[in-house]
């Protein structure tokens, strides 16, 4: 994964709360054995009608969404299943960050592993972002700060290891593999069934 220190992009707003992973990518697209090219299925049932035609007034179908890398969503984004396909699809569609007042645990973990920054903000910042779609925000990962165009900023919490991985492009599997000795020691002291 390439390192990222700062993101500067316009926002697209989907204000619904409790957006679940079945909406982000419906299950019928999960029969794939690849992880590339899933962007075309993002929010498929909100973007397309039953004939497969674009639903004009859904925000992701508008040309103004094209250059937006930050998704601002309602409370409790990404609840539901563990499908990493949700993160793969959002990333492939062009999103690099998701902003909400609360982001579900498994989705957050999946997002981080795919270079999507999960940003949990306070209610005031959230309300402002919902009311001002297509604004340009800056997400400073090193300082864990989201900056709004009106000059205010909101500190968000991000796990220090996850931040380190984003900033330096570190692959967590490499780190885990480097723990080989400790894992072997653990296994010797905890044989199967003990």
């Amino acid at each position: 994964m390439e390192p990222i220190t700062q993101l500067r992009s316009k926002t697209v707003v989907i204000a619904n709360s409790d957006i679940d992973t079945d909406q982000i990518i419906p299950a019928r697209f999960l029969t794939t054995t690849d992880q590339d090219g899933l962007g075309k299925y993002v929010f498929a049932d909100w973007r397309f009608d039953d004939k497969g035609d674009s639903i004009e007034d859904f925000v992701l179908n508008k040309t103004e969404a094209n250059d937006c890398g930050v998704l601002v969503a309602g409370h409790n984004f990404g609840c539901g299943s563990s499908r990493e396909h949700a993160a793969w699809a959002l990333r492939d569609f062009g999103f690099r960050a998701v902003v909400s007042t609360s982001i579900a645990d498994i989705f957050r973990s999946n997002a981080l592993k795919n270079g999507i920054v999960p940003v949990e903000v306070n209610d005031d910042t959230h309300q402002w972002l919902l009311a001002n779609p297509r604004c340009e925000v800056t997400i400073d990962i090193g300082h864990s700060v989201l900056r709004l165009p009106n000059g205010t900023q909101c500190v968000f919490s991000i796990d220090s290891f996850a931040r380190h991985c984003l900033l330096y492009g570190v692959d967590p599997l490499g780190y885990l593999l480097s723990q080989e000795q400790a894992i072997s020691t653990y296994e010797r002291s905890h044989p199967c069934g003990q």
Binding site: Q35, N110, D159, L173
Partner: peptide
């Protein structure tokens, strides 16, 4: 439950990074 990247972590190391 875990994501697919973590499935690879567990396959390779029988371990997971967790807070």
């Amino acid at each position: 439950g875990i994501g697919t990247t973590e499935v690879a972590h567990v396959l390779a190391t029988q371990s997971l990074l967790q807070r």
